[in-house]
Simulated scan of single mutants.
Amino acid sequence: MHLALLQKTKWPRFRDPPLPVSQQILFFKRCSHILDKGYPLHDALQMTGWDTKLKSTCDTLTQHLSAGDPIQEAFVKARFSLSVTNFLYFSQIHHNLSRSFQQCKAMLQMKKDYKEKFMKVIRYPVFLFVFLIVACTILQKTVIPNFVHLFEGKKDGTFHLIVILMNVMNGLGILVLLTAILFMAIMIILPRMPFKKKLAFYERISILKMYQSYSVSFLFTTHLHSLLQAGLPLKDAIEMINGNENYELLSHYCNELLIELSNGKTFAQAIYSCPLFRPELTNIFHHTNDVEALKDELELLAEFLMEYLSQKISTWLHVIQPAFFIIIATVIILIYASIMLPLYQWMNQI
């Protein structure tokens, strides 16, 4: 019945820059509100296009949808974010566009809010950190070498302290540089790694494991609930999710589930082949056999995972700024000590 939709779909990696996130959020807010009133998508796009900021986007979507393009491809060509177009892949089955648009708006809004919070949190500490790096460089090149030269004939505590301070500041500089290089290397290399190596990397690095665990569990829970709500049997719903290879990890796990099910295992047994799924998700399939109860629990779990991930991100944002200030305070104390202690020692010798 859904053979055409079950074809493996993979969209191009390189495309025009996406629309501004604020514009995407506004589109989904306006269009979902109109769809809730009972209007068909074509009329909803036309009315959403009354806003001049959204007219071009709505015209592009109308053009491609009228030409017969699937909805996710039309949104790709209208330059929506990949996270949105991947999510809309499943709306062609459950046909609840209003709910899908509201979920897309919620995801984009959360990303936008936390990106803005992150930039506000790190803006001042990063400015101070850059200033301190410049100050440390000047001290390393001018002030401290003169003190070392002044005290090098006297192997006392002051001389050793200056040497230790120099080594500590050099060590901090090297640590910051290596951290930046490592982060950039991960951002560049990780998307290009073979999937099996990438999966092993996710499972070894705790912070990536936690993020991927919540992300893949939320996506699986949300899409499975939507497809079951549309009336698909459980196995067909898994096959449908497996068909979207843009969710690489999720597609892999669904393929593992299908293999385990074909080997005669129950779903509760098969789900253990997916180690990054959250325990809350695996527990649902152990104590729920009724499809109606399963749909309700999946909906509740999707809401819980979204809220819990939001709380985790907020907690990390509250930790980042104090951590930056502690590092900066340590560097300031080192700079002060590297200047004042030798001066006091030199003044005592006069």
Rank of each mutant, 00 (worst) to 15 (best):
P20L: 00
V21Q: 03
S22C: 01
Q23T: 05
L26Q: 07
L26M: 04
S32G: 04
W50R: 12
C58R: 11
T60M: 06
H64D: 05
L65Q: 06
L65A: 08
F75H: 03
R79T: 04
L82V: 15
N86V: 10
L88E: 01
I93V: 10
H94Y: 07
H94L: 05
R99H: 15
K105E: 15
D113P: 07
D113F: 01
Y114T: 14
K115V: 15
E116D: 14
K117C: 01
R123Q: 14
F127C: 02
V130G: 05
V130L: 12
T137Y: 00
T137N: 08
K141A: 14
I144Y: 01
K155G: 02
V163K: 10
I164Y: 11
G173D: 04
V176K: 01
L178K: 14
I181E: 00
M184L: 14
A185D: 14
R204M: 10
I205Q: 07
K209A: 15
F220E: 09
F220R: 09
L224T: 06
L227D: 13
L232A: 04
L232D: 01
L234N: 11
L234E: 14
K235V: 15
N244A: 02
L250R: 12
H252F: 13
L257E: 02
L257I: 00
L261D: 13
A268H: 13
Q269S: 15
Y272F: 03
P279H: 08
L281V: 14
N283G: 11
L294T: 03
K295Y: 00
E297C: 02
L300D: 06
L301S: 02
L301Y: 06
E307R: 13
T315V: 11
W316E: 08
Q321A: 03
A337P: 07
P342W: 00
Q345H: 15
